[in-house]
Design a protein around this nucleic acid. Structure first.
Lengths: 197, 197
DNA sequence: GTCTATAATCTGATAGAC
DNA sequence: GTCTATCAGATTATAGAC
């Protein structure tokens, strides 16, 4: 039972600690400004010791990418599973946009890593990318229940929601100026749907 | 008349050559991946010689930022001055979105530098930033003629158009999957306007 | 598992010859 | 105005002692 012994657990715990610190450093210095030196200092280690937990810096980016996508997937799933949730298209679209925008806006650096790929030379490994694909698939399924049946309609939806998030993060990070537009954006999109867009 | 003598002209010519090369390198290596060494190699100079033309690497980023904004401003102005342009709101919105999206999509790296500020520690100097402000002001004025009178409406417009550009560049750079949605996006937005959004 | 030591390389930038 | 030489420091990563 080596998978659950205390050594393994302790190791996993430290890996998580390092990841948490990596997010903190990246929020401070920018994603590309993350260095093993700073990261080690933040968890009370020398940079070289980090290699006991991650084989490379890219592996850290990759773990962050996977973690972010797992978090978003969990939130979508919690939303779908919520039995108190109204299921009419308007309510469902609002909830979906709300989950997505809150996620994007609460951490611009994470949003950047997950949806803009700003690290030259970094590509997530297949296993991590698969989580991102799952997120997209679930989003598409939920939107389908709202009457979004064509690719064009779905693309319009992602443009609209990601546009609100992008503008918010780029021009007023931490604020709500664009986030507050979500309800009227949903209404606007609903009318577009009904016009057969 | 030192401002127009051949020395000055030649110098300005070389500066421009360096800037052109900087765009090329940045498109290849990413904005953060631009190095003085690579840049020098591309124009047939040692990295150190570049300092005869730009006092620092940041000054190069700054000149690129200013150049990009001047280009966008010129395109907006050309659009406004075009007498063959239809002036009804729908046509005007389409032309505006078209200018903007074409600009964003034809060079994702430029779009990144101008509208996403991905270089940690880089802030354009006041003179360069002023051009960006001018671009925004002109955009606002044009949109006003289309019936966009409130900040909320203008924010919705920028979210919608920048969302289309962002999605296009992030998911299918060089393609037209989201760009092709511009006409129905304009129609969607127009209906939102008329509803008093 | 963490350390010291260090490799090997890249970075932006300066000094001074020509 | 471009060069050589060089600084001073950063970077990721590996080897090996403990």
């Amino acid at each position: 039972m080596s998978g659950v012994d205390w050594r393994t657990r302790r190791r996993e715990q430290t890996r998580q600690e390092i990841l948490d610190a990596a997010w903190t450093v990246a929020r401070d210095q920018g994603l590309a400004g993350l260095t093993m030196r700073d990261l080690g200092a933040r968890v009370g280690m020398r940079a070289q010791s980090l290699y006991s937990y991650f084989p490379s810096k890219h592996a850290i980016y990759d773990a962050m990418f996977a973690q972010g996508n797992r978090e978003l997937l969990a939130r979508y799933r919690a939303m779908v599973a919520d039995e108190s949730l109204a299921r009419d298209p308007r309510s469902l679209l609002r909830s979906t946009a709300d989950v997505h925008l809150r996620f994007c806006a609460e951490d611009p650096v994470r949003q950047q890593l997950l949806h803009q790929r700003p690290i030259p030379g970094f590509e997530p490994i297949a296993g991590s990318y698969a989580i991102a694909v799952e997120v997209l698939a679930l989003g598409r399924a939920v939107l389908h229940d709202c009457g979004v049946t064509t690719s064009r309609q779905f693309d319009m939806w992602t443009a609209l929601t990601s546009g609100l998030a992008t503008q918010q993060n780029a021009n007023e990070p931490g604020g709500t100026r664009w986030l507050r537009l979500v309800d009227e954006a949903v209404d606007m999109f609903l009318h577009y749907l009904r016009q057969g867009g």
